[in-house]
Design a protein around this nucleic acid. Structure first.
Length: 464
DNA sequence: TCTGGGGTCCTAGGACCC
DNA sequence: TCTGGGGTCCTAGGACCC
């Protein structure tokens, strides 16, 4: 075992984050099952509140299955990602105020190197526990009551496993020397990089627990899984994990994709979706001041098989029109006659410096000829297709998305409770009010407009 | 039950160059 | 006529993570 006992790493996981933000901002949902995710026919669950988990709702579960399991009275909401990001920022700022070394893994998860903290807790009796309790108290105060679970250990792997052991709102500390006692009884799936496929292969060799894995020789693991994964498995099974906490990571790729409500065979429809994707990816390149050399088109077929086609330019571009043109060439080489359920567009080979094609004038590059017919935007309102998840799907026919923040000229701020058949129902309440009344309007009522999420950015514990 | 959307990393084979 | 070796870049696909 070679964890460095001087290292002290914390992993923090905000509990049922999306659902918790919804319950915080929508008093009528507190204590009730809440499911956040794609509401279309092909949507999946992003987060289920603990009340919804009682009925078996889980992350990544198809939404239709979550609806089948949860009782009447369950709230099914599409996400308010702006609100989640804003609250995430408050939490990450708290972490950074306590240690300069914070690695944000996702909107609701981070590693913190406590050895680098201004007041490192050390391993003394009750010390890490007290340090974390104080942290969780500040997070609770400044986010309007959100809870997090944390784990503290000598490595990232053990810290993460520890944070999962007592949820919600738990603090679990694995002290130096305890690593293998904690690790070896766990299922192999606990090891980073062991998913369903690797676990299934390991099971054929009789490996069920991490302890079983630790008994397999490195040579055998490398022979079975290749150099990188084999050596990684061998080390992690011994709690040998010196991966550092890295504060800043550079993006390697930017992509956008869309699953259709029903499979699409119409090329014109695919091209118009590709145009939207290119505009989105191009916009994100621009706002990040980045340029890309490789363009990738991704297609998921009717049978769920996935195909990618990519091409690398002799220059780096930030121009969505160039991305689109390459995307069209790539898509033209894909058979769509059996039906496409997903179309994606991505860029990679990112650099901070433009090197547009003009600078390469004179180099032969026939691919760049603008020779494709412009079919973008054609045939966009067939009605039987459209996004399956995310905001687009939730917008539905009325243009309102369930859970969305709105404001009414007379009744003030509220959120969309449901919509359909030209009507929209709003509940008028906010984080600081008691559960509020529900009223129904025409979907195009001019008195009703989209509103901003409650503002928690000041982190004062109450929206301003 | 029928499978989202955003990413990262790895492998393998082929082209190409020296 | 038979046949090198290494390095790098590119493409496609797959596993995994949140």
């Amino acid at each position: 075992m070679s964890s460095d006992p001087r290292r002290c790493v914390m992993h923090l996981d905000l509990d049922a984050f999306f659902a918790a933000v919804e319950q915080r901002d929508k008093p009528s949902l507190r204590g009730r099952p809440v499911v956040v995710g794609g509401l279309g026919g092909r949507g999946v669950v992003s987060t289920a509140s603990y009340e919804a988990r009682v009925f078996g709702a889980r992350s990544a579960m198809p939404m239709v299955e979550a609806r089948r399991r949860c009782p009447a009275g369950t709230a099914f909401l599409s996400g308010r990602f702006e609100a989640y990001r804003a609250t995430s920022r408050v939490v990450m700022d708290i972490l950074r105020s306590r240690s300069p070394l914070v690695e944000q893994v996702s909107v609701d998860e981070a590693y913190v190197d406590l050895s680098a903290a201004a007041d490192p807790p050390g391993w003394g009796e009750g010390a890490p526990e007290a340090w974390c309790a104080d942290l969780l108290g500040e997070i609770r105060e400044r986010t309007g009551g959100l809870t997090a679970s944390v784990g503290v250990a000598t490595s990232k792997m053990l810290a993460k496993l520890a944070s999962e052991m007592d949820k919600p709102a738990g603090v679990t500390v694995v002290r130096p020397g305890q690593e293998l006692d904690v690790l070896h009884p766990l299922d192999v799936r606990a090891v980073a990089g062991v998913g369903p496929a690797t676990a299934a292969r390991l099971r054929t060799f009789g490996v069920e627990t991490v302890g079983d894995l630790a008994r397999v020789s490195q040579a055998d693991l490398v022979a079975i899984f290749g150099t990188a994964q084999g050596t990684s498995l061998h080390r992690l099974a011994r709690a040998d994990d010196d991966r550092p906490v890295v504060a800043e990571r550079e993006a390697k790729s930017i992509s956008s994709e869309e699953t259709f409500a029903t499979d699409v065979t119409d090329r014109a429809a695919l091209e118009s979706e590709l145009t939207r994707l290119a505009e989105g990816v191009g916009g994100r390149l621009r706002s990040a001041s980045l340029f890309a050399r490789t363009i990738t088109v991704k297609v998921r077929h009717h049978d769920f098989s996935t195909q990618t086609r990519s091409s690398t330019l002799p220059f780096a571009t930030g121009d969505h029109a160039v991305v689109l043109r390459e995307g069209r060439h790539l898509l033209a080489g894909v058979d769509v006659s059996q039906g496409i359920r997903l179309l994606g567009l991505g860029v990679s080979g990112l650099t901070a410096h433009a090197q547009e094609e003009l600078e390469l004038e004179g180099t032969a590059y026939p691919e760049l000829a603008p020779d494709l017919p412009d079919v973008g935007g054609a045939d966009a309102e067939d009605g039987d297709r459209g996004p399956a998840g995310g905001l687009g799907a939730a917008l539905g026919e009325t243009g309102w998305s369930t859970g969305q923040d709105v404001v009414h000229e007379v009744h003030g701020p509220g959120w969309v409770w449901g919509s359909g058949r030209g009507r929209v129902t709003v509940r008028f309440e906010g984080p600081g009010t008691p559960p509020g009344p529900v009223r129904t309007f025409a979907a195009d009522d001019p008195a009703l407009t989209a509103g901003p999420p409650p503002d928690w950015s000041a982190g004062s514990g109450a929206p301003s």
